Computed example of a mutant assay.
Amino acid sequence: MLGRSLGAGTFAIFWQYWNPIWGYYLGKYIFKPLKLIFPPALSLIITFAVCGLIHDLAIMILKWKVTLLLTPWFLFMGLSVIVSDYAKIDYSKFPWAIRATINVVIILGCLFIAYQVRI
């Protein structure tokens, strides 16, 4: 899972390989119903935000403290998927190490932005 996802040639494909079981349920119960109401791009962004919120809720339950870092982080990653798809950014022809570096930089960049706006 890690090698295939990190070596993905687009950020959208990264998410297809990352935790496919969780992705299946998010797709079935969040994305598809949202897509009936909203455009696909907005549905995807909301799905990422909901995923982040679920992760944040688990942390809040464990810590008994309100904290929202993963929700904005996932929101920014969802935006990155949409923007990179729209711009047709494809790095699949690069070696695995370069593809993995690009994917990690996108993820960490989104985390950095989320950390700046955290609650």
Rank of each mutant, 00 (worst) to 15 (best):
L2A: 10
L2V: 12
G3S: 06
L6T: 03
L6M: 10
G7L: 00
G9W: 01
G9M: 04
F11E: 01
F11W: 00
A12Y: 11
A12K: 09
A12E: 08
A12G: 05
I13K: 08
I13N: 07
I13E: 12
I13R: 08
N19Q: 15
P20W: 07
I21S: 09
W22S: 15
G23R: 06
G23H: 05
Y24L: 15
Y24M: 11
Y25T: 06
G27K: 03
K28S: 11
K28I: 14
Y29I: 10
Y29W: 15
Y29H: 13
I30Q: 00
I30C: 02
K35Q: 13
K35M: 08
I37S: 03
I37E: 00
F38G: 07
P39A: 05
P39H: 12
P40Q: 05
P40F: 06
P40N: 06
A41R: 09
A41G: 05
L42F: 15
L42I: 15
S43Q: 02
S43K: 01
S43P: 06
S43C: 03
T47M: 07
T47E: 08
A49P: 14
A49E: 07
V50D: 00
C51T: 15
G52A: 13
G52K: 08
L53A: 03
L57M: 07
A58R: 11
A58E: 09
I59T: 04
M60F: 03
L62D: 10
L62W: 11
L62H: 10
W64S: 13
W64Q: 13
V66D: 00
T67A: 05
L68F: 15
L68E: 01
L69H: 03
L69M: 08
L69A: 02
T71G: 07
P72V: 10
P72K: 07
W73M: 14
W73A: 12
F76Q: 07
F76S: 08
F76W: 14
M77L: 15
M77V: 11
M77D: 12
M77Y: 06
G78I: 02
G78P: 05
L79D: 09
L79F: 15
S80T: 13
S80M: 14
V81L: 02
V81C: 01
V83T: 03
V83G: 04
V83E: 01
V83A: 10
S84T: 12
S84I: 03
D85G: 05
A87Y: 14
A87C: 12
I89F: 04
I89T: 03
I89P: 01
I89K: 00
I89S: 00
D90T: 00
D90H: 02
S92V: 01
K93Y: 05
K93T: 12
P95K: 02
P95V: 00
W96M: 09
W96R: 09
A97Y: 14
I98G: 02
I98Q: 06
I98Y: 08
I98C: 07
T101R: 05
T101M: 14
I102L: 09
N103D: 08
N103L: 08
N103K: 11
N103G: 12
V104W: 15
V104H: 12
L108V: 15
L108E: 09
G109H: 10
G109I: 11
C110Y: 02
C110W: 03
F112M: 10
F112Q: 09
A114Y: 09
Q116G: 12
Q116S: 14
Q116D: 08
Q116C: 11
Q116W: 10
R118M: 13
R118E: 12
R118A: 13
R118D: 03
I119N: 11
